[in-house]
C-alpha cells in the first residue's frame, strides 16, 4: 500500500473514490482526522483526511447500512472522558467502513518548515473540499 502523497502529480484539487475509512481520530483540535484508503491509479493508497465535524457527520450518513451504528460509536467516543480518542475499523469485528458511490474532493497540504516556509514536499494529510454522491442514471 502506498501513501497517497507519493502518487499525486501536482498540488491541484483532485478526487478519490472507493474510499474505506479505517480510523477516526478525535484529537482535541479544530478538526477531526480520518484515516482512509482509496484505489488511486489502480493501486491501494493510504491517506489522512482532515475535516470539520459537520463533514464527518455527512460521511457517516453515507456509510449506508452502518450509518446508525457508526453515529452511535462516534457519539460514545466524543463522550469519552479523555481525548485524543481513536476509533479503529481495521479488524474482523470492525472492518473498514466503505463509502459506496461517494467521491471526495481533496486538497493538498504542506508541513511548514522551521522558518515557517512551506516545504515543497506535500503532506499525506489532505483537506476535504467536498463530498459528492454518484447519482444513478
Amino acid at each position: 500500500m502506498r501513501l497517497l502523497s507519493d502518487s499525486i502529480a501536482d498540488d491541484a484539487n483532485f478526487f478519490v473514490e472507493e474510499v474505506h475509512v479505517v480510523a477516526i481520530v478525535f484529537d482535541n483540535t479544530d478538526d477531526v482526522t480520518v484515516w482512509a484508503t482509496t484505489h488511486f491509479d489502480g493501486e491501494l493508497h493510504f491517506f489522512h483526511l482532515a475535516l470539520p465535524f459537520q463533514s464527518l457527520d455527512t460521511l457517516l450518513r453515507l456509510a449506508t447500512d452502518r450509518a446508525a451504528t457508526l453515529q452511535e460509536e462516534v457519539a460514545d467516543a466524543l463522550a469519552a472522558s479523555e481525548w485524543p480518542a481513536l476509533l479503529e475499523f481495521n479488524s474482523d469485528e470492525a472492518p473498514p467502513v466503505p463509502l459506496p458511490s461517494v467521491a471526495l474532493k481533496l486538497s493538498v497540504t504542506y508541513p511548514a518548515d522551521e522558518e515557517g516556509e512551506d516545504d515543497p514536499q506535500p503532506h499525506n494529510i489532505f483537506y476535504l473540499e467536498g463530498v459528492y454522491v454518484r447519482l444513478d442514471p
Binding site: 450518513r61 452511535e72 466524543l78
Partner: peptide, 15 residues
Amino acid sequence: FYEPHLRLMNRAHTA
C-alpha cells in the same frame, strides 16, 4: 443538528 449527538441523546429524529 449533529447526528452523533442526536444518537447519544437517543432522539427519534435525524439531523
